[in-house]
Structures are given as C-alpha cells and as structure tokens.
Design a protein around this nucleic acid. Structure first.
Lengths: 253, 253
DNA sequence: CGGCAATTTGACCGGTCTCAAAGTGTGTGG
DNA sequence: CCACACACTTTGAGACCGGTCAAATTGCCG
C-alpha cells in the first residue's frame, strides 16, 4: 500500500459511516458493523486537481473508485485520437465497474474540478462481498442501475433531437444534484460546452445555440458555468413529449 | 414451481454441462460440480414462438434468463407508445440484469424467431453465487461486459453516421455468430428492417437504402433475411476510420 | 496588458428524415 | 391450392435539422 497516497488517516477513519453519500454509494443497506469492515479496505486518496487523470483507458484494473466530492468525466479515445465522453460522474458514483469483465479499464477518468476519490481495491472488495451478503447485493444493484441509465441514454441518442437531448441533460443533472442534497434549481456546470456537446453527440456550436435559445425562451438562465432552471415544467415537456420523434414505430415485430 | 412450463426434464438434465454455450454463459469458469449445482436451479421453459413475449417492461423481477437458441429483441416503450429497441440477444446472453437494481424489468423481451430460454430464479442464483465464488465472479463479469458493450454502442450512436452504424451492426452480428460457432460470413437476420432502423437510430428508408447501396458496392449480398458479408475489410474500414467523424474533439478539458 | 482558449454568432451545406407510392412476400380463409 | 389482404420493403423527391467553416467576442491567467 502506498502510504503517500493516503491523507490524514485519522480524521477520515470510519469515514463511510459518517459520509453523507452512504445512501447513494456502496454502503447502502449495510449495518454499521459491516460498513466498518468496508471502511477498512477503502483508501482515501489525495484530491485530484482539475484536469488530472485517475486512470487511463487500457490501464490494468485493480480497484473500483467512488467519487467523494467534485466531479469527473469518463471518456474513451479511438485509434484516431478523438475522444468520446461517456458520462459525467457526481459524488457517490462508482467508477471502473466496466473494467471487471476485461481486467482493463475501457475508459479514462479525468477530474473536471478538484475532486476527492475513495479507492476500493477490487480483490478485497470481492472477498468482503463474499462474506457480507448485503455488499454483494449492493454491488449488483449498482451495476444494474448503471445498465439502466446507459439504456436510457442510448434511447436519448437514438431518437431525440438536439432540444430534447439538451433538456434531458439539464434535468438529469438537476435530479442527481437533488439526490445529493444540493439544489437542482441552480447549480454549476463543471464541464465545458465542448464536453457537453461531445457527450450529447452534438456540435459545440449547436450546444452554444441551445444555451442561448433556451435562455431567450425563458427556460433557463445561464452565466458561463452557472445555470438556473427557471421553467422545469417546460423542460420536462420537451423530454417527455416527442411530437416530432423519429421512428414512431409500432414495431409489430 | 410451475411444472407445466418445464419440458422434458430428463433429456435436459445436466444440460449446462452439455451445453455448447458454456463458454459464453454463466457457467464459464465453473467446475463440473459447480455447474451441476447451477443446473439444479435452472428451469428450461417451453420454447417461445416468434413474436411472443418473455416478460414485459414493468413486470416484477424474479428471474434472469439465458437465451439458449434463437434470438430476441429487448425494447422499452415510452409513454406515447413508441418503442426503442435496445438490443438483439443471441444464444448464451443473459437477460434481465438491468432489473436487479429496481426489482422491475425496465425492458420488454420478445422472440424474433422460435427461441429457447433458460430461467434462472434470481434469489436462488444469488444464494448459489454466495457459496460458489466463481459464480459471483462470472455474474459480475457478465454485467461488466454488458456495460462495456453499451458504452461502445453509445459511442456509435453519438458520433457515427448511417454508413458506419450499419457496417458496425453487421460486423458485430458476424463476430457474435462466430463466437457461437456459426458462420460470420453468411447468416440470417432474424429482425426486420424496421427493427434494425429503430435499433440504429435511423429511419427504415435509410436502412433499406443502405442494404441496397452496400450490395451495389459489393460489400454484402442480401436476399431478404439472408445476408453474406463479401468484403469485410471494407466494412471494417468503414467502422474504424472516421474521416468525416463529428467532434474530432481534442477535448483539452 | 497581452495571448490563447473557450464560447458565441452567422452563413451555408449536406445527410438523413418525411411523405408518398410502388413493389414484394407471407399468411389466412375459402 | 388459390386468391386476397396486409405487412414489409424498396424507391423517389423534397425539406429541414444540425454539422461545418469562418470569424468575432469573451474571459482567463500569466
């Protein structure tokens, strides 16, 4: 164990039990005692600075990670060197689950702002999950939920237009912030316009125009990174109704 | 247990150990003995006819399922009744993993042709995974790999054009057939054009034109459902090279 | 204050969707 | 076993959303 990467053990000990993210993170559903056991295998690492990398696509898989505070983006790089952002991760979310199958991280993780991370060495976690039934359950639940959100996102990309994608993006962030006890009405976008565009499968220019137009139409108020959702009903309507949706597809088989 | 839904117990007993899909399915990595234990909880159900439903979006989650032969599509239905196809599943693939987190299937499954399915009651499977370490590992691996393929598919939808999507689709099917011991050079498409279009986020007309054009250009030969991949190198080139790709994105953060 | 990256705005273009209609197969019932 | 109906697929013509290219503007940070 690399002690240089662990900070201030004392003040953080028993951290999971005191962490406000318990209900979103791996400890959910565990007893205090079991959480203590989990705590013993968690490494708390020195915070990542904006722009620094947690791990790179292709690195050997050894640990899962949990975002503790801040935010990161995960992306893959193609042979030609272009990036595709896969997700933005907020506190309480687990990173690296997609590496279990191959033993290699398929994505790179970079901090969007100063970010604290908990490290969960996989072999020890797996061992503990074997002993603590609730942990095994929660691990599977977390992965399953990630499959779910991927499915929803695939749906977004497959048949939503730019307006719908953008509205969904904003509301999704809002509800995730709310689940973490922050305001979903006003928050900061830690990612750049170009990150948003890349993530949503749009051009930067299109995203920029969306910010402008949505503000003109009174749905949001933006000032650089800071955004307020003024008319969430209208944003919601944009996501749910799909009047011009492609492929109305009754799909009679 | 509903005995009417189980056929010919005798001839299928110890089926996992004799199943050629072992290496793709849950038993991978288990000893013969452990596979026997797995076998004891697997229910083999009467084959699904083309067009019939295994389970519906919203049904209560109780079991995972494995495709034994044939193929199915999974799709979600929006409030407005339009469908979005999420995936096509071939033999050896596990269905329902995305329901573990919520206790409810988020997708419906319908057979594209006559299809045999193995049922894996989740609670019993979970219990067995607790006892058989290799099973727990394999379950996590299978889910992780699904996350991976979802990520790749998201990438496809986010920044590939129609040609690239279609070529990827064909090659993906080909390699999956090959992994199952079938020819990847010539096979049958069990799904309709409109299913393909819906899945790829394209219009039916576009897909139809792709079939026509790819054939004219000598990359494939199609006759209704049957397809041969004549020039896989060229198809591959379409997927990998992305000369006109959107968002070349250096993404300097 | 100066330079550079990020963002915004404008003009134009093209790929893919939409609408429309013809063509092809398949399954059912007489 | 044939005929008809219906669903699926193909083909064509035109429109539009969102991408590309170009340039101006803004903000950040040394």
């Amino acid at each position: 164990m690399d002690s240089s990467s662990i900070i201030n053990i004392h003040s953080l000990s028993r951290a999971c039990n005191e962490c406000q993210l318990q209900d979103l993170c791996l400890p959910l559903g565990l007893s205090r005692g079991d959480i203590d056991r989990l705590d013993q295998i968690v490494n708390r690492r020195r915070p990542l600075q904006r722009g620094s990398t947690l791990f790179n696509q292709g690195d050997r898989f050894q640990s899962l990670y949990a975002v503790r505070s801040g935010s990161v983006k995960s992306y893959s790089t193609s042979d030609e060197g272009d990036e595709q952002i896969n997700a933005f991760h907020l506190p309480g979310e687990i990173l690296g689950l997609d590496a279990i199958g191959s033993g290699t991280y398929p994505l790179s993780i970079v901090a969007l702002e100063t970010t604290s991370i908990c490290e969960l060495p996989y072999e020890r976690l797996h061992q503990l999950a074997h002993e603590v039934d609730g942990l095994q359950r929660q691990l599977l639940r977390v992965m399953s939920r990630e499959l779910n959100s991927d499915e929803q996102f695939m749906r977004l990309l497959a048949n939503r237009n730019a307006d719908e994608r953008f509205a969904s993006f904003l509301l999704n962030l809002a509800s995730r912030y709310e689940a973490r006890g922050y305001s979903g009405q006003a928050f900061n976008l830690s990612m750049s316009r170009s990150d948003i565009a890349n993530y949503l499968g749009l051009a930067v220019e299109t995203v920029s125009r969306l910010f402008t137009r949505f503000q003109q139409e009174g749905m949001i108020r933006v000032q650089r990174k800071s955004i307020s959702l003024i008319d969430r009903d209208r944003l919601n309507a944009l996501c749910n109704l799909n009047p011009l949706g492609r492929n109305p597809a009754k799909n009679q088989l």
